[in-house]
């Protein structure tokens, strides 16, 4: 494990570079295939509306996968992430309008732990709504 960020160089409050991740219907079809999650709420608008959703929604696990990229891109080595947890608070609604939705992710160091580890708290929003809650990673730095 070889993180490119040194523990001694970060402080509580250090912000990680924020990123915005686009998601379209095509993204969701591709993620369904790669992950094996073929729940029709992620690709079939008629079905999604029938079960009470506003439209097709992104897989929660897709949003979780995108959000941690802010941390893995920062740390360099994805294995620096030793713990990662989220709560799925609101769905990412993905309209079939050619442009889809955006997931905006920011993160900052919330605590310095022992053993070169830090806790990073993430914020993920889409269309102004917080889509992940209690989103936290423990990261082992160099």
């Amino acid at each position: 494990m070889t993180a490119k960020i040194a523990y001694d160089e970060v402080e509580v409050g250090t912000e990680l570079p924020a990123q915005t991740f686009p998601v379209t219907r095509a993204t969701l079809v591709r993620y369904a295939g790669a992950s094996g999650d073929f729940n029709p709420i992620h690709w079939n608008e008629k079905f999604a509306v029938e079960v009470g959703l506003p439209d097709v929604i992104a897989h929660g696990m897709f949003t979780m996968a995108e959000a941690i990229r802010v941390v893995t891109d920062w740390a360099g080595d994805p294995a620096a992430v030793v713990e990662y947890g989220v709560r799925f608070t609101k769905p990412v609604v993905v309209p079939d309008d050619g442009s889809g939705a955006l997931i905006e992710v920011s993160a900052k160091v919330a605590a310095k732990l022992d053993d070169q580890r830090v806790r990073v708290d993430l914020t993920a929003t889409s269309a102004g709504q917080k889509v992940l809650g209690m989103s936290r990673a423990v990261v082992r730095l160099a």
Binding site: T2, F21, T27, R30, A34, T72, P78, A79
Partner: peptide, 24 residues
């Protein structure tokens, strides 16, 4: 396939040499 589906180009997922350089 999974890394491409999430749009993540981190070479640790696709390039054995890059992964080895990180100690994997």
């Amino acid at each position: 396939e999974f890394a491409e589906a999430i749009g993540d180009a981190n070479p640790a997922y696709t390039d054995t040499e890059a992964a080895k350089a990180l100690g994997h």
